[in-house]
Amino acid sequence: MDLLTVSGVSLLENGHAALQPLSFAQRQGQKLALAGESGAGKSTLLQIIAGLTQPSTGEVRIGGERVRGPHETLVPGHPGVAYLSQKSDLPRSLRVEQVLRYASKRSEAEAQTLYELCHISHLLARRTDQLSGGEQQRVALARLLLGAPKLLLLDEPFSNLDRPHKRVLQTIIEELSEQLGITCLLVSHDGPDLLAWADDILVLHRGQLVQQGPPAQIYRQPVSEYAAGLFGDYSLVQGVNPEMLVPSPTPLPAGEVQLVRPEEFRLGPAGSGGVAGTVRAVRFFGSYCELAVKLPESIIRVRTDFPTPLAVDDVVQVAVVANGGWRLPTATT
């Protein structure tokens, strides 16, 4: 059953199309993510869904009920929808327990369970201005969850967090649906954050919905260089000898561009088949190494296990794994 339906929604601001007409749906319990660069329209779309921004065309329905924008209601927002912005916006100088008590629609036992889920039980006696950025974000999230929303909209929740606080918040969000039955729609400009979490990803570019699908499809079969770059490194291989693509079942016609992820290349010793290349750089990334390999007409990124026996100036043979790589459509940007 669809909890959220977005139908033909667009937004015109000062003569500029901030959002082109787009449509999609989200099922109850489905983890849906919006990906795109800064300025792509992600936050704008989220605010329209939350009832905080008035669309120029189209409509949003949640549980079959139309979301009214701020031009249609005195108090912006929609019942059952919680919107976590990039800033926590907590009242200053109040104790955390005060902020949460004023917002709660849950029993004391439910509230305590929620505090434990959000890792804030030890913060209740502190003032909000004594919290770190990550702690403020978790308290702000708990305050929204105390209102028992059906749909939680998360606008770049990790953007200002260091790695430890980011991992804590990621774990919390992963557990929300299972423990509280809350459906989440998450926005991020950092695509790799979404791959392990989302059931489905929507890619926005300049206000347009350019691709939608499960994470593996979005990563392996991007519609453009833009979509590919959101989710990780890649190399473009153009006009190479067909033997480089063996044993790929869909050889690359001369002149066409193939997008290949670093882990989709395979390296062998000189003379072992494929296309000859020369190692130009070896970079250490902890659990793996990434090599820059010079081919006759391009430089590619190749991921290998650590430690790697290869060094700068070594000659290698490069091939693409079976089913690896993706032939880009005519437009590659």
Rank of each mutant, 00 (worst) to 15 (best):
Y115E: 03
P55N: 10
Q238W: 00
P249N: 09
R206W: 00
L169G: 03
L169Y: 02
S93V: 04
Q47F: 00
L236T: 11
K166Y: 00
D193W: 00
D314R: 06
G239K: 01
P55V: 12
S38E: 09
L19M: 05
S23T: 15
V257E: 01
D233L: 15
K31I: 01
G277H: 04
L195P: 04
G325W: 06
V282Q: 06
S121W: 00
R101M: 01
V96W: 02
V81P: 10
L230Y: 01
C118E: 04
G64T: 10
V316W: 03
L310V: 06
Q54K: 02
L230C: 02
Q28K: 13
L124W: 05
A228V: 08
V9Y: 06
T128A: 10
A142Y: 05
L310G: 03
R167Y: 01
G8I: 05
S224F: 05
Q212A: 14
T73S: 12
T304C: 13
A50V: 10
A331Y: 03
R143H: 04
E174G: 07
S177C: 13
A322W: 00
P307D: 10
T73N: 04
S272W: 02
P149T: 11
V223D: 10
S10D: 11
R68N: 06
I49K: 09
R101H: 12
G41R: 07
Y234H: 13
V99K: 02
T278G: 00
Q54S: 10
A148F: 00
Q54N: 02
Q112E: 15
P329S: 06
P269H: 12
Q238S: 11
A142Q: 09
E263R: 13
N14E: 14
S287Q: 14
S43G: 05
Q211S: 09
S248V: 01
A196L: 08
R303K: 15
V96R: 08
V240D: 13
Q217E: 15
Y219I: 03
L180S: 07
K87W: 02
S85E: 12
P55A: 11
Y234A: 08
L194C: 09
F158L: 12
A311N: 12
S85V: 02
G51R: 09
T183A: 09
A17M: 12
V320D: 04
H78F: 15
A111G: 02
D190S: 07
I62K: 08
G232Y: 03
E72S: 11
E116P: 00
P262S: 10
R283Q: 14
V237H: 01
I120Q: 07
F24N: 10
L202H: 09
L152I: 05
R106V: 15
L46Y: 05
L154C: 07
D305N: 13
R106W: 00
I299W: 00
E174C: 04
V260C: 08
M244W: 05
A18Q: 08
Y288G: 01
H71K: 14
K150H: 13
A35F: 03
E37D: 11
D190W: 00
L194H: 06
L291R: 06
T330E: 15
L34T: 08
T171R: 15
I201C: 04
L131W: 07
E264I: 06
P164Q: 11
T183I: 06
T308I: 07
L153Y: 08
L295P: 05
L141E: 09
R143S: 12
